[in-house]
Design a protein around this nucleic acid. Structure first.
Length: 275
DNA sequence: ATGACTAGGTCGCCTAGA
């Protein structure tokens, strides 16, 4: 099963690029962030015509997340469970169960700068996410937590770590907050296959950053530890950043060797007959 | 670097992104 995440920076502006990439990469599940559109205006039809189901949680101008799936989407949840804490006005979280796998698609706040109110919001948002996982994810659950985290987990995830040390997306408090979300429950899919620096998922639109390959790795696909033996690959689809009028982020894609539940049942029958 | 790009909203500048 191919699972992808992509901050598209407006689903309507990027629609043809997204459709082209789906036709090229053929993901089973595609999680989008920064859709920048209210639910009624989300272009669902082009995805349905390709055989996908779509769930969305969006707002005007900013934020917005969506899950696009070839398989049946169940147990849909939008935002955090406690509506009274004020973390659901910005549409940054959508989750569902697909083929028995819990998919949690996040668009973590950027935080602006570390001395801003937005930074406080980012840290508190991550605490909410950690609490959500504490409350809802049990030891044997199969979980994929993916999206735009707006945090480089370590210095090797930044093209010039010394320049950005302690700053937004690189600060210790953000990394600790992310660690507290992950804390032994998940593995970073990309780092299973690539230990070196020089691999980015985001390049600033400014200063010719992509041509100079001055990027950051801030989009991540975390899988629960019980899925580690199923993980076959994790790649950054860097070529999408070369598109005309691209998103500033590239998609990230994993291959998890788990099948449609119905197919599993057939496989089990075959095994039984052979015995 | 009070900078640079890009998108969306209300409209010729603002917020926001990261």
């Amino acid at each position: 099963m191919l699972i992808a995440t992509w901050n598209v920076n407006s689903v309507r502006t990027r629609l043809s690029q997204i459709i082209n990439w789906i036709n090229h990469a053929n993901p089973d599940i595609l999680c989008l962030q920064e859709t920048k559109v209210i639910d009624d205006d989300f272009p669902i039809k082009p995805f349905e015509e390709l055989g996908y189901e779509v769930i969305v949680s969006g707002q005007k101008s900013y934020n917005g997340v969506a899950i696009i799936s070839k398989f049946k989407i169940e147990n849909v949840s939008k935002g955090f469970p406690n509506e009274t804490l004020g973390f659901n006005e910005q549409k940054r979280l959508i989750s569902a169960v697909i083929n028995g796998l819990k998919i949690i698609n996040v668009y973590v706040p950027n935080g602006s700068s570390i001395d801003s109110d937005k930074f406080d919001y980012k840290i508190k948002w991550l605490q909410q996410l950690s609490s959500l996982l504490d409350g809802q994810v049990k030891g044997d659950d199969l979980v994929c937590l993916l999206g735009d985290f707006n945090i480089a987990p370590s210095n090797i995830d930044i093209h010039a770590p010394q320049k950005y040390e302690g700053g937004i997306m690189a600060s210790q408090i953000e990394r600790e907050s992310l660690f507290n979300v992950i804390k032994g429950r998940f593995i970073d899919s990309f780092r299973i296959f690539e230990k070196d620096s020089g691999h980015w998922t985001w390049w600033d639109y400014r200063n010719n950053a992509f041509d100079l390959n001055k990027g950051w790795r801030i989009d991540h696909i975390y899988i629960s530890k019980n899925l580690s033996s199923k993980l076959k690959s994790c790649v950054i689809e860097r070529s999408q950043r070369e598109n005309l009028k691209p998103s500033d982020h590239a998609p990230v894609l994993i291959n998890l060797e788990i099948d449609n539940q119905n197919e599993d049942y057939f496989d089990d029958d075959d095994d039984f007959l052979e015995i």
